[in-house]
Amino acid sequence: MSTGVIFSLVTALGLIRLPDVYTRTHAASKSSTLGVLCVLLAAFIHFWLIEGIFNTQLIIAIAFLFITAPVGGHLIGRAAYMSGISVADETVRDDMEVAIKNQKNELLNNKTPEE
């Protein structure tokens, strides 16, 4: 459980300190997922061993969070890139920009002969 608490703190620290949206999604999706997984696992073990209740909803919640939180991070990052938010100044290379430019050029070249 202390692992989970430490990871939640690291999430908040990362969201405050990191320079742009993409690094913030990186911090938020990974460390907060691991933090909440550790806390929920601790709650499950507490209820199972101390009070003798085998709670299935906690297992379902753990599985669901483990699947969906990285997907949410990915979707936010993709939406941020598509809506044109620029990356931080420290970025070395940007492969998506080249790919999207190529895609737009292909679309333009395909469209002009038809019309």
């Binding site: 908040a12 938020a28 907060s32 909440v36 929920l40 936010i76």
Partner: peptide, 14 residues
């Protein structure tokens, strides 16, 4: 802000 809201939801769970 959306990233922060997502992380707030997850931290509210814990």
């Amino acid at each position: 802000r959306v990233v922060a809201l997502d992380a707030i939801g997850i931290s509210l769970v814990s």
